[in-house]
Amino acid sequence: MMKAVNLDLFYDRLGYYPLLLVGFAIAGLFGYLQLSKEKRKNEPLKFCLEILVTVGFYELVATFVSSQKIVNLWVYNLFNAHVAAVLFMLLIGSFLKRESHKKMVNIFIVLFLLISLVLHLTGFVHYNDSGEYISFLNTVLILCCCGLYFFELITIDEFLEIDPLKEFSFWASTAILFYFSSSFMVYISFKYLYTYHLDIYYMVIQIPRHMTLLCNLLLCFGIYSPLIKDRFQLEIIHV
């Protein structure tokens, strides 16, 4: 017999965090649809929207799954550790100017997916475990991608003409760098903290949560930046 869907618990568990993320996703989608056809072709903007929608979607799914008393770790393992991580890498890749660096990012992505596949197939990691190894791997690779961006920023002539403080790529890379490096220790110590120090776990889990909110807010702002420029002739940040 099919188990009845418990929507009351789902509504109870919809805290400010998933609601804000869904809000960012809807706002991002709305902003993106307002953009001109030409601006919609802008790669970084496309990836920003994809990240916003993915994050909003999986947080909603994770809340729903957990409200049905089902372990929701597979949702985070699939969407957070794989789909969102690859999208973040693609976003940083779209900021890069050198073709060789772009290729390197693509290699990172393929490498990450291959290693993840091998680890899953060999049974070393399970799709419903706490995902320390996969998180370790994707964080290292994303930090390497951020490193490539900052390396280009201080070495490539094309970046000499720009003011990094007014550049979306700079703030997005900085936010991603802060997000993944601050979440790094939390993700890989997830199982230990959850098992032995539940109170500390609840305390430190706020770090990646708030960093996600900040990061998504910035990505959402990135989508709205061309609109603000067109409407008010004011370029706060250049995308």
Binding site: F150, L153, I154, F159, P164, L165, T174, L177
Partner: peptide, 8 residues
Amino acid sequence: VVAMVVLH
């Protein structure tokens, strides 16, 4: 990040 901006 500040060092990167200064270097730039």
